[in-house]
Amino acid sequence: MAEPIIRINRLSHAYEEGTPAIHDITLDIPDNAFLAIIGHNGAGKTTLVKHFNGLLKPSRGQVLVTGIDVASTSTAALAHLVGFVFQNPDHQIFSGTVQEEVAFGLKNLGIASHEVERRVGQILDELEIGAFRDTPPAMLGYGLRRKITLAAVLAMDPRILVLDEPTVGLDAHSTNEFFNHINRMHQQGHSIILVTHDMRLAARYSSSCLVMRQGCTIGYDTTRNIFSNSNLLACAGLAQPAVTRLGSALQDAGMPANLLSVEEFADAYLGLSEHTL
């Protein structure tokens, strides 16, 4: 088996003010994963992922990111490897122009200025925000601010991308757009870790799921297996998406109980109704 990109071995983090504790977590995340970490507010999801770039250090146990022990490495030194998109874009925006905001991380990495310029230009074009290049980012609307923070992280081209409730407050259109970029990164070989309590997002985009409850992991499996287990989700204070529930309700009529999306449901249903016709 290939080397996991993140290896977590008996990790615990003791309670501090503002940080829910996590207990004895052991887990391997394979390279090029699209992992969703789901659970109720305060289940410890954010505490767990903050260990991936050394923002938190283990109280006990070990976290290895591409073999590097995070306990002895600074967050800044891990930044080229692990990119973070935090819930609130306003927790990082500070520059006078969009361009500078996106270049900030690259400059910190010590990249040559012509290369910084090239990468910033490219990412602004890809995300279609080139027109705002010289605008103060704080003056832009929420959707654009979110996009700028994404651009700032993507520009650094980290192998692992951690998204902590990235689409809270975004409309459906912006969310789709956001995940189009994320999917492209995933296809290019990056590993994606999505922290969310939105079951529609997890079901639609992730390929594996980690379920957390009160600081412990209570399930780690493919997204399909996790979402067909309604008891496990209920135990974590979560619920299946409506299509999954509809599939299970129609199980007696022949529908599968592990459907994740509207498209899958339609495929299964049409297959079945053609058959009965």
């Binding site: 409309d171 459906a172 259109h173 912006s174 998406p241 409506a242 299509v243 509809l246 509207v262 339609a266």
Partner: peptide, 10 residues
């Protein structure tokens, strides 16, 4: 840009 109810999407 509205998230529809999933049943409506279906």
């Amino acid at each position: 840009g509205v998230y529809p109810p999933q049943m409506m999407e279906l």
